[in-house]
Design a binder for these strands. Structure first.
Length: 271
DNA sequence: ACTGGCTCCTGAGGGC
DNA sequence: TGCCCTCAGGAGCCAG
């Protein structure tokens, strides 16, 4: 599933193809994504040039002179640049057609993703305005986590997955970051020390940076059939590894459910 | 203000 | 070319 590293890799892969490129039309084949895909996209954007492609959290923002398209890949979405006459899949729901004969296609089998439009500053959009800091930029630190966690009774894993606290930490990387920081996922957020949050913030940065680096090589051509690159498996320490020995101490990795989500940790190393 | 639970959807995987 | 069941998962939304 696309987490921040994959969204960023997608952004970097697509940017050179569409920046300055003129949109000919927008084809919405299935508007039933998480929210209805606006039908006005074609009318509003045809003939306009893409001015920017940026990312905020897991949202991609396509900037046009008239406004911005906001795209979220949900958990099964992928974007790829293809020739317009190439074969389509039944899950290719939205297509941005460019003057040079290339298409930006959104494929999303589970349709948890979103394509929205706003004529205003996209960062002020309802879905974006309350987002927490980017984990790889200034503004995110152990101090930030510590300050915002005071008085919170929620488990630390759910706390760091809350996009109002920090964006882009999905289930897989939350598990991995907690492992690297040696913190038990069920620990109460409001009771962790500043020192432990320093370690956690650093672990989040490290795991996301490493993943972006790997994703950059794996996803370069965007022709892979799905959005699940091989780099995942190789670098994961605990995610999906119930019963396997902890890379640090050999204790079997434990699996529990936390907030309806699969949670993996080493009961010995993570306290 | 917080917190926990529900919800959308389909493909994968397991049991038989 | 087997069928059925269960589960995963991002994140907005809502009830308590």
């Amino acid at each position: 599933m696309p987490e921040l590293p994959e969204v960023e890799t997608t952004r970097r892969g697509i940017e050179p193809h569409i920046l300055g490129n003129t949109l000919t039309r927008v084809v919405v084949r299935n508007a039933s994504l998480r929210w209805p895909v606006p039908r006005i996209l074609d009318k509003t954007l045809a003939g306009l040039k893409v001015e920017s492609l940026t990312r905020r959290g897991k949202y991609l923002l396509l900037g046009f002179p008239a406004g911005s398209v906001i795209i979220h890949l949900g958990m099964s979405g992928s974007l790829r640049m293809v020739a317009c006459d190439s074969d389509r899949n039944k899950h290719d729901h939205v297509e941005f057609v460019f003057q040079d004969g290339m298409c930006l296609r959104l494929r999303d089998p589970r349709r948890f993703g979103a394509v929205l439009y706003t004529a205003k500053d996209p960062l002020q959009h309802k879905l974006l305005v309350n987002l927490g800091p980017e984990p790889l930029q200034r503004g995110f630190s152990g101090r930030h986590l510590y300050d915002h966690s005071r008085g919170k009774k929620v488990a630390v894993k759910l706390f760091i997955m809350n996009s109002k606290i920090v964006v882009g930490v999905g289930n897989i990387y939350a598990n991995e970051a907690l492992f690297l920081a040696g913190i038990h996922p069920k620990r109460v957020a409001g009771r962790l020390t500043a020192e432990r949050y320093d370690r956690l913030a650093q672990a989040i940065k490290n795991v996301l940076r490493a993943a972006i680096k790997s994703g950059g090589t794996t996803l370069r051509d965007f022709t892979a059939e799905d959005g699940r690159p091989g780099y995942f498996q190789q670098k994961l320490n605990v995610y999906g590894k119930a019963g396997e020995p902890c890379p640090g101490c050999g204790t079997p990795i434990k699996h529990i459910t936390l907030g309806q989500r699969a949670t993996y940790f080493c009961p010995h190393c993570q306290t």
